[in-house]
Computed example of a mutant assay.
Amino acid sequence: MSEIMNSVNQRTQLVGQNRLELLLFRLNGRQKFGINVFKVREVLQCPKLTSIPRLNSFVRGVAHIRGQTISVIDMSLATGGKAIVNLDTAFVVIAEYNSSVQGFLVGAVERIINTNWEAIMPPPKGSGRASYLTAVTEFENELIEILDVEKILNEISPISTDVSESVSNMSVENKREKIIFIADDSAVARNQVKKALSTLGLEIEMAKNGLEALNRLKALAEETGDITDKVGILVSDIEMPEMDGYTLTAEIKNDPALKNLHVVLHTSLSGVFNQAMIQKVGADDFIAKFHPDELVTSVQKWFDNI
């Protein structure tokens, strides 16, 4: 296990290069799950948990780790399974999402695998746990399920999508024919962004991954020859199956019909965000998830300048 921890510490310093490194874990059964290594701070054997009244039923308790008090979420309970019983052999994955740190209680931690985004696919329709999956992949003839952590966290502690009154009074004048395009593999995240940006009064179109977004943007561009005649801005997640946000941005900036599109990368990779990678692919802006006022203000200001 010390090798896994050391590997996590080293690899969380890397971002991009169109590859995905997954930390594999199990809950109660044999099924393997994955979490992006770049969101993992630490993996440790389950420490002593302290119960606190009125905690969400999925939160097994809080742990005091390196000067922080961290809620520990039972990932099996949170995805509709049975509670992880033997805490003495369980592990806690400390991860950062949306500028906050959480602990995920898992039954066992196995290894880190290196794959690429092209091998990450949307979850199959009709699978029992599909509502909690954001993607799947295959490794050594085994199906790896990638959980929609943003959905899980939102069910436990919903993120406010409300925009403050001063910001909600903003609107985009004389550009109402423009579309705001959103790309994100998490349905929860897509709807959060849509609700916030709806205050600008513009049409919004959404895609579930980078490849779907790219194909749709190309189709829109074919109508006039320049995507900016139709779309004012793209707000894209970075981690998406089939094509990640880095690759999507690079494809856009290398396409004459798309290159003028303003691209904002909007990601929960706040703790390990690599500014050099954003510059390399040519993204125009970066906003950490999820701050409704900041997102709406940034988009509104861009529309005012075009």
Rank of each mutant, 00 (worst) to 15 (best):
G34K: 00
G34D: 03
G34C: 08
V37C: 01
V37L: 01
K39W: 02
E42I: 04
V43N: 02
V43R: 03
L44E: 10
Q45F: 08
Q45D: 09
P47V: 11
L49Q: 04
T50G: 06
S51P: 11
S51T: 13
P53Y: 02
N56C: 10
R60E: 13
V62L: 11
V62Y: 08
A63Y: 08
A63Q: 08
H64E: 13
I65P: 07
Q68Y: 04
Q68T: 05
T69H: 10
T69K: 12
I70V: 15
I70L: 14
S71N: 12
S71P: 09
D74I: 11
M75P: 06
S76W: 01
L77R: 14
L77N: 11
G80C: 08
G81H: 13
K82V: 07
A83C: 10
L87V: 02
T89D: 09
F91S: 12
F91Q: 04
F91A: 03
V92I: 15
V92W: 09
I94Q: 05
I94V: 15
E96Q: 14
Y97K: 03
Y97Q: 09
Y97V: 13
N98T: 09
N98C: 09
S99D: 13
S99T: 10
S100Y: 06
Q102L: 12
Q102C: 05
G103F: 05
L105Q: 07
G107I: 12
E110W: 00
E110I: 01
R111Y: 03
I112C: 01
I113T: 02
I113N: 02
I113Q: 02
T115E: 02
N116F: 00
W117P: 00
I120F: 03
P123E: 06
G126E: 08
S127V: 12
S127K: 10
S127F: 13
A130M: 07
S131K: 11
A135C: 00
A135W: 00
T137A: 06
F139L: 01
E140A: 12
E142C: 01
E142S: 11
E142Q: 13
L143R: 14
I144R: 00
I144G: 04
I146Y: 04
L147M: 06
L147Q: 01
V149Y: 08
K151M: 05
I152Q: 04
N154L: 08
I156L: 04
I159H: 06
S160K: 01
S160I: 03
T161G: 11
D162A: 15
D162K: 15
D162C: 09
V163I: 14
S164D: 14
S164V: 07
E165A: 14
S166L: 13
V167L: 10
S168E: 11
S168Q: 11
M170W: 09
S171R: 15
S171H: 12
